[in-house]
């Protein structure tokens, strides 16, 4: 007669339990693979008018962060851990030449991976900085970075070929960030995440002095300020023409306590200045990530790969033997 701990151990190391949990996780994943995840309530009401209530009530819109999926995944991790321990100790009892450690490395790699993923879920910090050339931004911990240069190359058909941002770090060192080639800096990883073109509004005073404003920025003038709010196009630009030709700048002019919204085109007056049109600029979207789970996830993948390699070599030997 087995004791309760022995029964529990046998139950948790059971391959049948593993297979059962894998099937359940697969079924839930199919549901999550069919129903788009994490969308708004309005999306489900529009896309699945007959089933939206059920989807939202059962939280099928958030399967992978839902309690059922997480409980099954946790149980599977426990099963995998106990199974791996049992299997590994069993293999050690065999003669060295009969040992098969490929599945052990794969299983332990998966456990390390799950641990890393949990750490990532709890500790990951992420922020996106949009910087134009010469602009400085701060990472969430206050580390300042300045975009010193950005290069964009395009193929003849207009598709992007490469995006690169040169970044000046505190202390003056310059580092390069490219798509697929992130920069690791003081525990942060900076990715070339986005790239877009923007426009600055150009102004000139009576003396011919010019200044420009990025969208959302304010310029102080005597007794008030000019805020560049938005760009308005009453009709699309003609093919081949400058994309901002005919576009107007939406400004908020504050003077002597009075506020006035202006929609101005090239040459229109704005207080003591005149609006001189738009100046195009490229903006680099940099994603900064701090993730304590990173080394564990990477180690988990490395172990899993090693386990797969050992398993593969053995299978191949068996096939051509």
């Amino acid at each position: 007669m087995k004791s309760i701990p022995d029964k529990l151990y046998d139950g948790l190391r059971s391959v049948k339990l593993a297979a059962f949990l894998i099937v359940l996780l697969a079924i839930l994943s199919v549901v999550g693979g069919i129903i788009p995840q994490g969308r708004s309530e309005a999306f489900y009401l529009q896309k699945f008018p007959g089933q939206a209530t059920l989807i939202l009530a059962l939280r099928l819109d958030a399967i992978f962060t839902g309690r059922v999926f997480l409980i099954l995944a946790a149980l599977f991790t426990v099963n995998l851990t106990v199974c791996s321990f049992h299997r590994f100790t069993g293999e050690l009892k065999k003669p060295r030449k009969n040992r098969r450690h490929g599945p052990d490395f794969l299983h332990i790699g998966l456990i390390v991976l799950v641990f890393g993923a949990m750490l990532t879920a709890r500790t990951r910090t992420e922020s996106i900085l949009y910087l134009a050339k010469g602009q400085t931004g701060s990472l969430p911990d206050g580390t300042a970075i300045t975009l010193t240069d950005l290069k964009e190359e395009r193929y003849p058909d207009g598709r992007p070929k490469s995006w690169e941002s040169s970044i000046a770090l505190e202390g003056g060192a310059i580092a390069l960030v490219k798509v697929n080639s992130p920069l690791r800096l003081k525990g942060w990883t900076i990715y070339q995440q986005d790239w877009k073109s923007g426009a600055r509004a150009l102004f000139e005073d009576a003396a011919g002095m010019r200044f420009s404003l990025e969208q959302g920025a304010r310029f102080a003038i005597a007794g008030g300020s000019i805020l560049f709010m938005d760009i308005r196009r009453e009709q699309p630009a003609e093919v081949g023409a400058d994309e901002y030709s005919g576009a107007k700048a939406l400004l908020l002019l504050e003077r002597e306590g009075k506020r006035q919204v202006l929609s101005v085109g090239k040459g229109d007056p704005v207080g003591l200045f005149s609006f001189e049109g738009f100046e195009k600029e490229s903006i680099s979207g940099l994603k900064a990530v701090k993730d304590k789970g990173y080394p564990f996830v990477a180690a988990g993948f490395a172990m899993a790969l090693f386990g797969l390699f050992l398993t593969y070599i053995r299978r191949l030997k068996g096939l051509f033997a």
Binding site: V179, Y191, K287, A304, L308, Y312, R315, L319
Partner: peptide, 26 residues
């Protein structure tokens, strides 16, 4: 048994590493 390790390495492991390099998420 031969395809599974290759598929696991390709679809899941290498795919995740590429996603991390390109988009910053595994």
């Amino acid at each position: 048994a031969i395809g599974y390790p290759l598929f696991t390495a390709g679809a899941l492991v290498f795919g995740a590493i590429w996603a991390e390099k390109a988009w910053g998420v595994w």
